[in-house]
Amino acid sequence: MIDFLKSVLGREAPSSKNMAKERLRLVLVHDRASVSPHLLENLKEDLIRVISNYMEIDQNALEVQLNREDDSVALVANIPIIKMKRTYQDAKV
């Protein structure tokens, strides 16, 4: 609240602590993904399972990665589709 008032009143430039927090938030997205390579692998498997309910996809060509922009990180998936299904079907477990 105090921080908010200060910034509205323009008394202070954005505090360096907020810059620290923001930079940490972004850098840790990458760090955590690389400490645990299983995480992206598990995500891939889950994605395949869910998407297969709707379409047939090329599982071997599927790519999942984190893309870093200036002030955001995005999860980018490239999933080649082989065939659309006509209706929704529960995935076979």
């Binding site: 921080d3 202070e12 505090s15 360096s16 602590k17 907020n18 620290a20 927090k21 940490l24 938030r25 840790l28």
Partner: peptide, 16 residues
């Protein structure tokens, strides 16, 4: 430094 917003405080670090 915490007071003037130039150092992360306890909550900031626990949150991260």
């Amino acid at each position: 430094m915490v007071k003037r917003g130039d150092m992360m405080n306890i909550e900031d670090m626990l949150d991260i």
